[in-house]
Structure formats: structure tokens, C-alpha cells
Amino acid sequence: MNDDPISSRALTPAERESYKTYGYVLLKGLLSPEQVAATRDDVMAIMNQIGLGMTALKQTSEYLADSPVEALVNSPHLQAIASALMEGEARLYLPFSAVKSAGGGGAFHFHQDNQYTKFDGPGINLWVALVPMTQESGCLAMVPYSHYLGTLHPVAGTNHNSGLEPAVRVPVPMEPGDVVAFSRLTVHGSGKNLTDKARVAYAIQYARHDVRYTRDLGQTWKTIADDGPGWRTGPVEAITIPEKRDGH
């Protein structure tokens, strides 16, 4: 596997306080331009294989061994940042690409990550910009203080994680190599990509080692420490190409 692409540095008191207070913190320049370019090219090679299409958020957790994406996913320095912000040992939960199509790739609804799979303790998303993130390209927007609300219930008539239309939302412009860390409880979303280039990012979710999670509305609970994340987080031998269907 490649060397750690994330620079090693301690979080400042202000960064820790921002995360606690607002539910997110922007960490500038954690990847070098060279690491950004290699990781972006790797992500887009995967997109070219599986087909990006016109999408608000093309996600896949698959990556190849000894690739730039594998180095990012398994970065000890990134895991250390997650551990520091959650105030306990971080365990890898779910890595995935976050690519928005050029020329109108749609808005992604406001939601909490904890509205997908529910954690009973701290979880964090470290979201890595691999191209410039602007409002025009559909950068993330955060709802400060929303992590204090706990896990929000779904809105009637919508799917399990949508329906939120917060009055206050703070855009988070980013430069390539920046990382925004946000709580699993922080409400966030993104706008359309109106530029002529894909919006390319990579997200790595962690859970604190003592957290339990449920994927069946609380009927059963598993622990990160004993049962693992319940998702494949290791490399694959080949990227899975989605099966083509008539009319698609």
C-alpha cells in the first residue's frame, strides 16, 4: 500500500472547539497537490468503469489494492484525526466516492448520516475535496448546531433520510486537499453542479470503537469493536461493473 497521503499534524484547540460547537470543522491542506491528483485520477478511473452518468452523488465503496484510494481509506493520520475529534479510538465504518456530474448533476437533499444506519454513539465523516468546491459546483452546506438535536425522524411521505429543508445552511467552499470533518448527527446537503467539470470528493466514515449500530430500526444492534462495520471496507481485485438493463 502507498505511503500515508494525509499530512501528520495535531488538531488545534480552535479546530476541536469548532467541531464540538458547530458540528463540523474545515481542515485545510491535509493532502498535497501530488496526492490530490493521484487520488482524483484513481476515483475518476473507477467512475469511468462503472459509469458516472448524470447523478447527484455517484457512490461506490470499491477500490483496488495498492491504489491511491486505498492509501487514503487506510490512512493512520486520518484515523488519528477522527479519534481525536470523537475523543476515542476510531474504527473504519464506510468509505465511498462522492462524485457529482458536470453540467447539472443534481442537488443532494439535506440529511443526517445517522438517518441511514443509526449509531448509539459518536460517528464522524471525513470528506475530502479532490477538486475545488464552490457553490456553483455543488459544495457541501452544513447546518450548524444541528448535531445537538439527536437523530431526526424521517418526514412523512418521503424516504427515510430526506424531507429536511433547513432555514440556515452554511456553504463550505474547499480547495483540493482540504477535509471537512462533521458529526454523524450534523445535517448537511449540497446543491447542483453547474460547472463543466465533475465535482470529485471522497468520504470516509468512522465510528468510535464502543459504538453500536442498527440497520433494522433498532430490532438488532451490533458493535463496531466485536462485529465490524457490516460493510466491505477492504480492497477488491476488480471494480464491479453494474449490469446493463434494457432501456437504461
Rank of each mutant, 00 (worst) to 15 (best):
Q59W: 09
L152Y: 13
Y145L: 11
A167P: 00
P171Q: 13
T60Y: 05
P95F: 07
S75H: 01
V236A: 05
G163E: 09
R9W: 03
G53A: 08
Y116D: 11
V99L: 07
P5H: 05
P33C: 07
M1T: 08
Q135R: 12
P33M: 06
A141H: 14
R215A: 13
L94F: 12
S101D: 10
L31S: 01
F110G: 00
Y213E: 01
H160C: 09
P173M: 14
Q205R: 15
N74R: 15
D41I: 10
M44Q: 10
M47A: 11
Q49N: 03
E62G: 09
A10H: 12
K58E: 12
L52G: 14
D196H: 14
V131H: 05
A45K: 12
E87Y: 07
A14I: 05
P13A: 11
N114D: 13
V128W: 00
P132K: 10
L72A: 04
A37H: 08
G88D: 08
L94S: 07
N161T: 14
G123W: 01
F119V: 00
M133Q: 15
M174A: 13
A198H: 08
K197R: 15
F119W: 14
L11G: 06
V131N: 07
I204N: 03
L30V: 08
A80H: 04
S97K: 05
A167S: 14
I241E: 10
H111M: 03
P173W: 13
A71S: 11
Y93C: 01
H77R: 15
Q49F: 02
H147M: 03
I224G: 06
Q49R: 12
A56Q: 13
K20T: 11
F96R: 12
L140K: 06
N159L: 06
E243L: 11
G163Q: 08
T158M: 10
L31Y: 02
R9V: 01
H147E: 02
H111L: 00
G189D: 09
H188F: 05
L85W: 01
D226R: 08
P33Y: 02
N114T: 09
A141K: 06
G189V: 00
D120N: 15
K192A: 15
V99D: 03
L57H: 13
M47F: 02
T233R: 12
S183P: 04
A71G: 07
L27H: 01
V155R: 13
T223F: 06
L11A: 11
R212K: 14
A107G: 02
S61D: 04
K197F: 01
Y63G: 03
H77N: 15
H188S: 01
D210E: 02
L64T: 08
V168F: 14
W221M: 09
L140D: 00
V131S: 08
N159A: 00
N159D: 15
A181E: 03
C139F: 05
S183Y: 04
V73N: 04
G230H: 07
D41F: 06
S190T: 10
D3I: 13
D41Q: 12
G234W: 06
F96V: 08
L149N: 15
Q219T: 12
N74A: 09
V69G: 03
G103A: 05
S83D: 08
G88K: 06
Y116V: 11
Y145W: 12
I224S: 05
D42P: 12
K28G: 00
